[in-house]
């Protein structure tokens, strides 16, 4: 791995939504670098484009123009098939809603990305998944149906799941948006620990300054661009 190159390099990123006649340009030539293992807060007012940026970085949404390099790979212009594999290999997601797959247990949810991966669930993957569940304090809930967990517990399982394939970048879109203060802080602390230990880069969107203050770096999205470094 060439340490000189940042994990994420975004240049002149434009995203325009076209809904029938109306065009909304949300990202307007955005530039952004994220280092390996960074723990970064993404702040901005509601509607500023935080979710849009995260989904574009997450390869779920194609940008209108611009360039995105993640882990040494230019992802703009990759085929749907390559993007799907890239997502499974390199990225982890934590969303505000839709935490878990309701028909599976907590452990199965954490294991799910390993099932999807080419080599499938290995013994090592299973051990790691159990370790991650222990780490988020939910070993005793491993065999619970995910619907039986509280909001904070679900989000911790979702975080373990985002990490199970040892991704280089975790994208978290307002992960604490539905949690109370205590659960929010607990989740933030966990993510920070993991980020530092596993050298995993986290990009966490929030409109909450206290949440952002738990991060090593905070960037602001204003008028479709990053307003600071």
């Amino acid at each position: 791995m060439i340490e000189a190159e940042p994990l994420v390099t975004v240049r002149q990123l434009v995203k325009t939504y076209r809904d029938a006649e109306i065009e909304t340009q949300v990202l307007k030539g955005l530039d952004l670098d994220l280092e390996h293992g960074g723990f970064v807060a993404l702040m901005g007012t509601s509607g500023s484009g935080k979710s849009t940026l995260l989904t574009v970085l997450g390869t779920l949404l194609r940008p209108t123009s611009g360039s995105i390099r993640i882990a040494g790979e230019e992802i703009v212009g990759l085929s749907e098939k390559d993007l799907t594999a890239f997502r499974n290999r390199t990225l982890g997601f934590v969303f505000q809603f839709h935490h878990l797959l309701p028909d599976f247990t907590a452990l199965e949810n954490v294991l799910f990305p390993t099932w999807v991966a080419k080599r499938g669930e290995t013994r090592a993957a299973r051990r790691y998944a159990e370790e991650l569940l222990a780490r988020v304090g939910l070993s005793d809930r491993a065999r619970y149906r995910s619907t039986k967990l509280s909001g904070g517990q679900k989000q911790r399982v979702a975080m373990a799941r985002a990490l199970v394939n040892r991704p280089q970048l975790v994208l978290a879109d307002e992960p604490t948006g539905n949690l109370d203060r205590e659960a929010s802080m607990q989740l933030m602390d966990l993510m920070r620990e993991v980020s530092h230990e596993e050298k995993t880069c986290f990009l966490i969107s929030t409109h909450d300054a206290e949440i952002a203050s738990r991060c090593d770096r905070t960037i602001h999205i204003v008028d479709g661009r990053i307003a600071d470094g």
Partner: peptide, 9 residues
């Protein structure tokens, strides 16, 4: 969610 985990169409 499954698609975000890299499950293909």
């Amino acid at each position: 969610i499954m698609r975000s985990m890299g499950v293909s169409q």
